[in-house]
Amino acid sequence: MTALNIQNLSKVYENGKQALQDVSLRVPEGAFFALLGPNGAGKSTLINILADTVRASSGSVQLLGHDLLMERAWGKRHLGVVPQEIAFDPFFSPREILHFTRGMYGQSRDEVWVDALLERLELAEHANKITRQLSGGMKRRLLVAQALVHRPKVVILDEPTAGVDVELRKRLWDFIRELNAEGTTVLLTTHYLEEAQELCDQVAIINQGRLIASQSMQSLLGDVASSSLCFRYEQAVELSESQEQALQAFAARVCDGVLCLDLQHEGEHSNFDTAYQAARQCFGAPLDTYMRQENLEDVFLRLTHKDAA
């Protein structure tokens, strides 16, 4: 079943800025889905439309088979959103905020679940302070607790770990991973691409309001990510025009004085040997060679730069 099915979603703001352009996206139920994009790409607009804080100009969204834009009350009960901006009512404590939030979603008090959330998000000690007294990282975790307190089936996390230290971030992800393993669908936006690569099984990349990739993380890293053969010489490499031409088939480039050549894969075979010989012919025997596999960050930068060009 599909948790979120977004069809031809567009948004033009009153000032004429087109934030989303015909975006279609499918998030399978139970997925850990990364929605990536540079700043201003349209990720937050997309999330805000799902959260009902921004109106869509056109398009449709289905949440667990229900029309989200038409059946808002139903949809909101099954959706938990961690907004990007930290904001809390200064009059209330974390515990009160969680009780109020649960109540507003039409659910009766559940001290056990509220305590569990406070415990897992390491807020138990601060549960009765007023929110003004919490640190930035604590507030960010409270936002996560607030989005989970009504036990939604789909959780959207808009940069939930910004400003959270490494240790806490790891524990936060362990908790979200547990929820995901229990069946909660997670849609995540983050600028920590290593995190996204490690956590998510599906990925979509959005740039300038348009979707430029949407597939499983495995296939994106397998099909789109390239591997390079790198050569280190005694002296830093400088590519002459003739050498560049000779190595054209391998998209030769120099990174930090190291020569890098793209490898092509066909099934289990690659053109490793041809690339090695071509580099030797141009520059002689290298001091060292090594393989470099593109990670999510490299693919992301390549795709978004190519798209921008």
Partner: peptide
Amino acid sequence: IMGKIMNTHVFLMMAPIS
């Protein structure tokens, strides 16, 4: 106005309150 300035009004808009 406090909700708008502190951005807490989004929680009300996200809740299933008609």
